[in-house]
Write a protein that binds this DNA or RNA. Structure first.
Lengths: 203, 203
DNA sequence: GTCTATACATCGATAGAC
DNA sequence: GTCTATCGATGTATAGAC
């Protein structure tokens, strides 16, 4: 048996365990809050002693970074999974609804991705790149709907952030602000039409 | 000297010291973050030993509650200090700008008032009443501008929250989203006009 | 009201044996 | 890779003297 196979198997097991650690960390975060995760509790959940976690993560912040990257990959996946739409308005509305649902279906994940509530945590360049990839996808749909000025984009991000924020903070598990996403998109697009320089010509 | 005067003086000194403790707590929070306030540090800032703080606050959460109430009083004061406006649109735009400026001029205060980042902290009924008083003032200006349906109010709070949130999170100290407040209000009011049931008749 | 002293808990991280 | 043991720090809160 060539040694690299055993090595591969070992690495595979390592990655698998690392993955379950991250999963359990999310569970703890949902139960107690992000800041309340303790490495002792986490180790107990995966049948390890607390110091053994350092075989998988260099520090607690490295664990948060892995969670941050995973969350952003999920968001990117949700955005790229959206069907192509002829109508850019419909496409945009769909995107907004997706983002708000993504935010509300896991408020703790929303917190980690968008509110940076962990003191001292800064995403690594690798993790940040995933977040950037998502913004590219969103930016493309926005541009197709006629938003191109930086101010247009800023206004859009504010609307989406506001809907998500209110939904998560004031009606968790409900849809009080989710229901407003289409109306908000219509409102936004109507505003863009008042600055018509960049409206794409109809196909 | 009647005893009640000495008692009054003592209570006065007590309240004064309590007030400076709260001020120093804000300074620490701005320096290290809300969650990072330690009673040891705080006591040192006001020339006390840590246990002596318990002569002024029953617990750390009681301190946060006092800060929460103070912040809401400031917000209420800022809102009620606004001049009366004939034009409800202008009045609303002014209110929005005030709220966003209030949020951005002290991100930590914004965090405590609107994002509840302190685990276990729930405002006392007294503190919460101050927050409600502010919402009443804001609601009056909103109604004057034609928003009366619950969905109208929800959409408005989302817009204001989004602008504040983005400003605080992505351009602290700047005005990238503050500058959008008038445009956002125009956008919002234009949307209201598409549901014209509740537009107030012009005087 | 303020102090010293301390209880008591929890935390992240490291050392070193196996 | 996992363990035991422990370090060093920090945190809130209380007891009791003055």
């Amino acid at each position: 048996m060539p040694p690299e196979i055993a090595t591969d198997r070992r690495r595979e097991r390592h990655e698998a365990k690392r993955s379950t650690i991250i999963d359990e960390a999310w569970k703890l975060a949902r139960r107690d809050g992000l800041g309340a995760i303790s490495l002792r509790d986490l180790a107990a959940q995966v049948d390890l002693r607390q110091p053994s976690l350092y075989a998988y993560f260099d520090s607690k912040l490295a664990l948060f970074d892995a969670m941050f990257a995973q969350g952003n990959r999920q968001l990117l996946a949700a955005a790229t999974a959206l069907p192509e739409r002829e109508d850019p308005v419909e496409a945009l509305a769909e995107l907004v609804e997706t983002i708000i649902r993504f935010s509300t279906e896991d408020p703790v994940r929303y917190q980690l991705l968008f509110q940076r509530p962990v003191p001292g945590f800064e995403p690594s360049p690798e993790s940040y790149a995933v977040a950037v990839a998502f913004y590219d996808v969103a930016g493309a749909r926005l541009a197709a709907a006629g938003a191109s000025e930086p101010e247009d984009l800023d206004l859009f991000t504010a609307i989406v952030a506001g809907l998500s924020d209110q939904q998560v903070a004031n009606d968790p598990g409900g849809d009080r602000w989710v229901r407003l996403s289409r109306r908000a998109v219509r409102m936004y697009l109507a505003e863009l039409e008042r600055h018509p320089e960049n409206i794409p010509s109809p196909s």
